[in-house]
Design a protein around this nucleic acid. Structure first.
Length: 1117
RNA sequence: GGGCCUGUAGCUCAGAUGGUUAGAGCACUGUGCUGAUAACGCAGGGGUCAGUGGUUCGAAUCCACUCAGGCCCA
């Protein structure tokens, strides 16, 4: 007879996981799972590429844990899921890391060092932690195809990006415009947001000036405008107001001034009493009013200098009228683009006024501030001036105040696709849902063109070449190496990634070809003479692409589309599922969406899980400086990867931030992992003892006891629930029910069914089993006695009842292993491989059972198992049992002592009936001989009428309190009797007759004094406390059994060891031996049970029962 | 400064479309059960449901504002 591998309840999950890992590796289970589904329908997952120039942290484990679920699940449903890995390699963080290593600060140092060696170091730095990433990925059981991963730095990848840009270029979607960046005039370089964050200084003093802008068509009327940067005024092109802000026109001296009403007090604090309000107006009434430009240094062709609307206008400070200079502010530039206003570049790259700004030409802008203030005062346009203290950014290197400053740059015209972006977004299933209209939707609504260029080194070079003849300026976009060859007449060849890595390029096959790395500086050296003017040279622009463009293009570029893999690309686009943390909404999620919408007018992904961030256990941010980082390895090594994953799935909904610590994972081990493991270990122990054969014919469902049918009904609805939740990408909805099920499996099903597993073919457990067995047989009889046929072919050692128990638990555990496979892939496979593979492989090599749960099929619900009524009834039984235990506890009656009767009161007759159907379970659990339900009129209980607010309140609204009063005023017993008879009750309210239906009130029974009861919300259980001798004897027998078991355990006996038992006690105990001796012997595997003198070499124990000393001795038989 | 999210017991989290006694687990105390369990049961302490105001017969739940934390954009 086949046996399962023995399973100890003591388990080290990390060790178990290591064993499973090496099995997966050696049998290539991941590969097999893909090969066996190769012809299946496609399920597409995109890996959001991490950057491997840092160590993976616990937040990466979070994302990878969620990513892993759906590919595994879909594979089990027969889909082919390719799961190409990916690495993000370009970008400023990499450069900064290398700068730090080299001790550099700033682009000047890089240029002096040399761009070529610099990017070589960048290239090396991105591989630095790849090993560690790969190890962690494998250890946590995230199945992703890393050997074929895409790398954004490969020439193939870059060529695909060039192709995309060329598509955009040809459709006129790429243009040169301005972008406002924080800029250090001394270093001559824009600062990244990282750098910016380092240099904020509080208490910075700047001028605060209020300037009068004269209205063109209303002499003597001015817009009062406030600014802290006088030097930006020559760049002014508009004044913004808030449409819904209240403005006033006030008379001040000879001037009429417009400003926000809310700011009058502040602005006129020195002039209180000298101001008269002439007019009120909403901001929108001012829109379009023109004013006379303060300065006209630069030529302007379009309409400008009028009042526009800006949603950024506040009435916190200033005047509520905001000076707009698109060259010197991001809001300004955005609103300037919206209104097609000119961008007046009055300042040069060193922060000095340009020549056209004649009064201040060549002057550093900050130095010009006082001169401008004086000039405005002289012209009578200065209303007042002062000093303003605020927090302002400075250059972290040289401490120079930064200027917000428009730089020429390249844009992708995403705004032209705003409607499509929004429409496509509405086709995406976002988890959590609010992201679609909230964070992401808002972002799309306020879409601005994508600033594509970065003035850096390590990135995808923009493939734009411009003729250096200023008179010509011819521009071209190159979309492939072939095009580059056509332009230059050279024969460039792109080194392939692997060859690149090994230094094996150029390819000896193509010796005449010229290897070209598409990165800077090599690509910068590729020039040709201008086909347009014939005089200039076509030179590449110096910028590289925003690295978000790299990753956002991965659906195309990971396949080197369209140069290769055209079919694969078609098959693998769009993605069914992606998953990253919320910070990616404006990052990867957006760039994927934008690239795809502009290129194909299609959403790039159909379902997306957007994860919240991980916090430390105390809710603070995890950071190196706080020293509260949790190392994933430390958790994997102590608690295991399954438990870590399970914690992440169940702790909180995916979109929420979640706290994390090894302690919280430990809780999962105790509560979930071990509970499951021990149910499994329990099964294996007894299945082996009893020579259970999984291949034996199944006991028909109808013949299985109610407990079996209950757990199978629960299992069936669990399969439905988990499947439906996974289809909806609801991870919490899939996992929490599994956790609940495991708890009930262990603490209800297994606990109540234990004795059925003790049946080893002798009369073991006979006595205790009688009731359960009887029930099973009774039902068999009712349904036509099929049990006979089944019993006939059973191994002699297993009764039908015991076989049913084994088969039921076997099926439950097997199905559970499948349901758990996507979530906790290790324990799932450990259970599966032992229960399903191990025994079969020995006996029946021909049976083709998949060798891993990850190669097997997702379970289907079995309609025949469904039994909602039974599940509901059992819930009621559990509630009653819980109350019954409380009642016993209150009476200090040990559970081991059988009692005569439990009296149960429930609110409805329907529930009373259900309870009687489950009487055996309840009696067993409460250790009582009989069960009785009581009605409202019973003299054991008082009844309280509880009008149900939900029903009555929603029906009668404001009259509910009066109806409630009226109901409570009636005789409760009369109401209760009516309700139990399903009759309505009539009450009078305000002279009106109102019928209250039975379902609109609840009858709560509460105990009359003197009973040992427990009561909750109208459910009550009372226990009779009187003991007869018979009951007492039975209780003693159980006490003795328990002591013998304890002694067996203490003596180191195996569970299956037989013993010889001798007991020694006074005559008071004689009836116990007479009536229960056989039972005690059976329970304790005693082949001999004697009353007499205890042998010297026996293990012994003693106890007192009702003052009587009982000596017990056992020996191994 | 703006947008989105979060705030319920010491800790982690549940609390359909509002319904009158706000729940579970961990931890703590007592007690019971157990030849599967590192478990489990029962009982106990522990809550101004972040705050204020509103809507309603009725608010943890809906609305407004405020406070705190997170993320993104300025």
């Amino acid at each position: 007879m086949p046996k399962f591998k023995d399973v100890s309840p003591q388990v080290s999950f990390p060790e178990m996981e290591q064993a499973i890992l090496s099995f997966w590796q050696q049998a290539d289970i991941f590969g097999q799972s893909q090969r066996q589904t190769a012809n299946g329908p496609r399920y597409v997952f995109y890996e959001g590429p991490p950057t491997a120039n840092g160590r993976p942290g616990i937040h990466h484990v979070l994302a990878r844990a969620f990513k892993d679920i759906f590919p595994r699940y879909k594979t089990m449903r027969g889909f082919y899921v390719s799961r190409k890995g990916g690495w993000d390699t370009h970008g400023l963080p990499v450069e900064l890391e290398v700068e730090k290593k080299l001790g550099f600060s700033g682009k000047k140092a890089i240029e002096e060092y040399g761009v070529a060696p610099f990017i070589q170091m960048c290239r090396q730095s991105v591989y630095e932690y790849v090993d560690e990433w790969e190890k962690l990925t494998a250890r946590m059981g995230f199945w992703v195809d890393l050997p074929t991963a895409y790398w954004t730095l490969t020439n193939d990848y870059i060529e695909s990006l060039w192709w995309i840009l060329k598509q955009y270029w040809e459709r006129g979607l790429i243009y040169q415009g301005y972008k406002v960046v924080p800029y250090c005039p001394r270093c001559g370089t824009p600062l990244s947001s990282h750098e910016l964050a380092q240099g904020y200084q509080e208490g910075t003093k700047d001028p605060s000036i209020y300037v009068k802008f004269p209205l063109r068509d209303q002499p003597g009327v001015y817009l009062l405008v406030w600014t802290t940067t006088p030097w930006t005024l020559p760049g002014n092109v508009a004044v913004a107001v808030g449409e819904d802000v209240d403005y006033v026109l006030v008379q001040h001296g000879d001037d009429k001034l417009w400003l926000a009403e809310a700011l009058m007090g502040k602005v006129f604090e020195e002039h209180a009493g000298h101001v008269t309000v002439l007019r009120h107006a909403k901001g929108r009434e001012l829109l379009g009013w023109h004013y006379r430009p303060l300065y006209t240094f630069l030529p302007v062709t379009q309409d400008y200098c009028y009042v526009i609307s800006g949603d950024f206008v506040s009435t916190e400070e200033g005047t509520g009228l905001v000076h707009i200079a698109p060259a010197f502010g991001a809001d300004d530039l955005a609103v300037g683009q919206k209104y097609d206003l000119p961008t007046l570049m009055t300042v040069d790259a060193q922060g000095r006024f340009v020549d056209a700004a004649t009064p201040w030409r060549g002057l550093f802008v900050k130095d010009a501030d006082p001169l401008i203030q004086k000039e405005l005062t002289d012209r009578g346009l200065m209303f007042k001036q002062g000093i303003y203290e605020h927090t302002y950014p400075f250059c972290w290197r040289c401490d120079t105040p930064l200027l917000y400053y428009a730089r020429s740059t390249w844009y992708i015209k995403t705004t032209a696709f705003k409607d499509q972006l929004i429409a496509n977004n509405n086709r995406i299933n976002w988890v959590p849902e609010h992201i679609r209209t909230g964070r992401f939707g808002e972002w799309l609504e306020n879409n601005i063109d994508w600033g594509l260029a970065r003035e850096r080194y390590w990135g995808t070079p923009l493939p734009f070449w411009i003729c250096d003849n200023p008179a010509c300026g011819h521009q071209e976009c190159i979309g492939s190496v072939a095009e580059l060859n056509a332009r230059t007449g050279r024969r460039f060849m792109l080194p392939k990634y692997l060859a690149e890595q090994r230094g094996e390029w150029p390819d000896p096959q193509q010796e005449d070809a010229e290897p070209l790395d598409l990165h800077r500086p090599a690509v910068d050296a590729v020039t040709w003479s201008c086909p347009q003017c014939g005089q200039g040279t076509m030179r590449r622009v110096r910028e590289v692409a925003d690295c978000w463009f790299d990753s956002g293009s991965m659906p195309v570029a990971q396949w080197h589309y369209p140069f290769e893999n055209r079919e694969t690309f078609q098959e693998q686009f769009p993605a069914d599922f992606i998953c990253e943390a919320v910070d990616q909404t404006r990052g990867w999620f957006y760039t994927l969406h934008a690239v795809s919408t502009l290129l194909f007018d299609q959403p790039c992904f159909k379902n997306v899980i957007c994860l919240g961030h991980i916090m430390a256990e105390d809710g603070s941010k995890m950071s190196k400086s706080r020293g509260n980082i949790v190392d994933p390895w430390s958790v994997f090594d102590t608690q295991g990867a399954d438990a870590t994953r399970w914690y992440m799935y169940t702790a909180s909904p995916p979109g929420n931030t979640r706290r994390f610590s090894a302690n919280l994972v430990k809780e999962i081990v105790g509560k979930f992992m071990l509970t499951l493991w021990n149910s499994y270990s329990f099964f294996v122990t007894y299945a082996n003892l009893n020579d259970f054969d999984p291949a034996a014919p199944a006991v028909p469902l109808a013949e299985r006891p109610v407990l079996d049918r209950w757990v199978l009904a629960r299992l069936n609805s669990l399969v439905e629930t988990v499947t439906a939740a996974l289809e909806a990408y609801d991870v919490t909805g899939a996992t929490r029910p599994i956790a609940d099920f495991v708890d009930e499996l262990s603490n209800w099903y297994v606990r109540l069914s234990r004795r059925r597993f003790w049946n080893t073919g002798e009369e073991i457990g006979e006595r205790r089993n009688r009731e359960t067995r009887k029930q099973g047989n009774r039902e068999t009889g009712e349904r036509g006695g099929e049990g006979e046929a089944v019993s006939a072919c059973l191994p002699v050692s297993l009764s039908t009842d015991s076989l049913a128990a084994h088969q039921t638990l076997y099926e439950v555990l097997g199905t559970l292993s499948h349901l758990l496979a996507p979530f906790t892939p290790f324990i799932a496979d450990a259970i599966y491989r032992n229960l399903v593979c191990y025994a079969r492989a020995e006996t029946d090599a021909a049976t083709s059972v998949p060798t891993s749960v990850h190669l097997s099929k997702w379970p289907e619900p079995k309609a025949g198992y469904a039994d909602a009524q039974l599940v509901a009834d059992m819930t009621l039984a559990q509630r009653v049992v819980s109350l019954g235990r409380a009642a016993r506890d209150a009476a200090s009656l040990k559970l081991r002592q059988p009692l005569a009767e439990a009296i149960i009161g429930v609110p409805t007759a329907r529930e009373a009936e259900a309870l009687l159907r489950l009487a055996d379970v309840v009696k067993e659990e409460l250790n009582v001989k009989a069960l009785r339900t009581v009605t409202a009129s019973s003299d054991l209980v008082n009844v309280v009428v509880h009008p149900l607010p939900k029903q009555l309140g929603s029906k009668h609204g404001r009259r509910f309190p009066a109806i409630r009063q009226a109901l409570l005023a009636l005789d409760p017993l009369a109401v209760a009797t009516a309700v139990e008879a399903n009759q309505p009750v009539t009450v009078m309210v305000d002279g009106e007759t109102i019928q209250v239906l039975p379902e609109e009130v609840e009858i709560r029974k509460s105990p009359k004094p003197g009973l040992t009861v427990a009561e909750e919300a109208g459910y009550l259980v009372a226990i009779t406390t009187a003991l007869t001798d018979e009951l007492r004897w039975e209780g003693w027998a159980r006490e003795i059994s328990r002591n013998i078991q304890e002694l067996r355990k203490r003596s180191g006996l195996e569970i299956s060891d037989r013993i010889r038992t001798t007991v020694q006690a006074g005559p008071k105990l004689a009836p116990v031996w007479q009536q229960h001796g056989a039972g005690i012997a059976a329970d304790t595997l005693s082949v001999a049970f004697e009353v007499g003198v205890i042998p010297n070499d026996a293990w012994t124990t003693s106890l007192r029962l009702d003052g009587e000393e009982v000596q017990i001795g056992i020996k191994k038989a």
